[in-house]
């Protein structure tokens, strides 16, 4: 198994699974997490790797509720197959420009 499984989310961002890694994962913690009753349940196991059980469009329209349970579960119980990217270009700019403005963002202060 190689390649990626990936889908976009409503707020702007994407979830990507590295299938080679996921195939080796024993817990598939992301799938378990997504199927907890109060969460959204859009992931399933297919061919031994995480698979989207709704369409890409449905996921992007909000079927994936961006609860981040899959990613956090992978961090504690998986082997790092998932990348949950939620870009904030304006924030990146703000941080990059801080030095020029003579500012230090709070989380970087000494």
């Amino acid at each position: 198994m190689s390649g990626v499984m990936s889908f976009e989310v409503f707020s702007g961002g994407s979830v990507t699974f590295d299938l080679a890694t996921c195939a080796k994962c024993e817990t598939k913690a992301c799938v378990v997490a997504c199927n907890v009753p109060n969460l959204a349940c859009v992931l399933e196991l297919k061919d031994n790797v995480p698979h989207l059980k709704v369409t890409q469009e449905e996921a992007k329209r909000g079927a994936c509720i961006e609860c981040l349970a899959c990613e956090l579960a992978c961090m504690t119980d998986g082997i790092g197959g998932i990348t949950f990217s939620l870009p904030m270009p304006e924030w990146d700019e703000l941080i990059a420009g801080a030095a020029a403005r003579g500012e230090t963002p709070g989380f970087q202060r000494s």
Binding site: S11, E66, M88, W91, P105, F107
Partner: peptide, 19 residues
């Protein structure tokens, strides 16, 4: 709010200088 919204707003709050 979605967790993703919380993630983003938390980053914004922590970016404020001098806190």
């Amino acid at each position: 709010p979605t967790a993703s919204k919380m993630y983003r707003i938390t980053k914004v709050i922590l970016a404020q200088p001098d806190i």
